[in-house]
């Protein structure tokens, strides 16, 4: 099973066992990880699932698309080099991912 380590804005960490094929966003919503809203359900329409991906995972996910790039530019919390919309981060079997949840999504 993939595993996601979410570092929340208050510094606490939540570790969630995920389903392969689910995204980091969906895993958060399904398991009540607060701070990731995913308003549109993963359709790349809302930019409310912004996360910072730990640098150790650089290259593990498909590159940022033009739409995702534009949307990160206007995300509620300023983007950084490691910013992604977590609906784009689909988990493979056995994959472990560390992400940090930003202060605000709206």
């Amino acid at each position: 099973m993939p595993k996601v380590f979410y570092t929340l804005p208050d510094g606490t960490e939540r570790v969630v066992a995920a389903e392969p094929g689910d995204s980091v966003m969906r895993t958060a919503i399904r398991n009540g990880v607060t701070g990731i809203l995913g308003q549109c359900g993963g359709e790349l329409s809302c930019a409310t699932c912004h996360v910072f991906v730990d640098e150790r995972h650089a290259g593990e996910f498909p590159p940022v698309s033009e739409d995702e790039d534009d949307m990160l530019d206007v995300a509620a919390t300023d983007r950084e080099d490691t910013s992604r919309l977590s609906c784009r981060l689909v988990l493979a079997a056995g994959q472990e991912v560390h992400v940090t949840v930003p202060e605000a999504q709206l």
Binding site: S45, C46, D67, M71
Partner: peptide, 11 residues
């Protein structure tokens, strides 16, 4: 097909 503009205007 303009999701970033949508976000800006919604806000």
């Amino acid at each position: 097909n303009a999701p970033a503009d949508f976000l800006v205007v919604r806000k």
